[in-house]
């Protein structure tokens, strides 16, 4: 059993020492993920804290079917980070100084560059088979938490077009990964 998986199973039985080990072993990777998505130290710290509290309380939900333990914890951190981003977007509606620009001030985060390990290698290869537009849409959605409408604004393309990019991209990706 993967050591992190064993720690998670001990956490689900209330073993606080296992949680401390798990935190020591994974927090730097998960903090990097939160920083990458949020690009703001303060938010990333909040999200790491909230995310680890969820991991502690829901450790029993982990199942190897959900991927490697770090991947599962990554999904908790990413979802918490996306919630934080959505809150920031809502708050910025009331802030005339921040009309949501921060969310598209940079080019797409290169999803594909981050993937070199065995598990992620296949995904990387398959992403390369997509069209540039499909890849860019998936990447912006993954790293920036963009909805269809936001993608359409960020890429300056009609809503229907970006929806199609996302859906075809996902479809091809899955078929490629199942080959």
């Amino acid at each position: 059993m993967h050591p992190n998986a064993e720690q998670l199973s001990r956490c689900s039985r209330g073993d606080t020492g296992a949680f401390a080990e798990l935190y020591r072993g994974t927090s730097a990777h998960l903090f990097a993920l939160a920083l990458r998505i949020l690009r703001k130290q303060e938010w990333a710290e909040e999200v790491l804290q909230e995310g680890f509290t969820k991991i502690w309380r829901h450790a029993s939900d982990y199942d190897s079917i959900k991927g490697a333990p770090l991947t599962w914890m990554g999904s908790i951190i990413r979802n918490t980070a996306l919630d934080r981003l959505r809150r920031a977007k809502r708050e910025s509606l009331f802030d005339p100084e921040a009309p949501g620009q921060a969310l598209r001030d940079e080019g797409p985060g290169p999803l594909e560059q981050a993937m070199q390990n065995s598990e992620a290698k296949a995904l990387r290869g398959c992403l390369e088979e997509l069209s540039k537009e499909q890849r860019e849409s998936l990447s912006l959605a993954y790293w920036r938490g963009m909805t269809h409408i936001e993608l359409s604004k960020a890429l300056a393309k009609p809503l229907g077009t970006v929806k199609t990019w996302v859906r075809r991209g996902l479809d091809q990706l899955r078929k490629c990964l199942e080959r």
Partner: peptide, 25 residues
């Protein structure tokens, strides 16, 4: 899908979190 996408976390350059986060948790 979650396992496919979130496997990227393993390849990110780790960033040490400030100790206060553990205290707060």
């Amino acid at each position: 899908w979650s396992a496919r996408f979130n496997s990227v976390v393993e390849r990110l350059e780790p960033v040490e979190a400030p100790p206060r986060i553990w205290e707060q948790i």
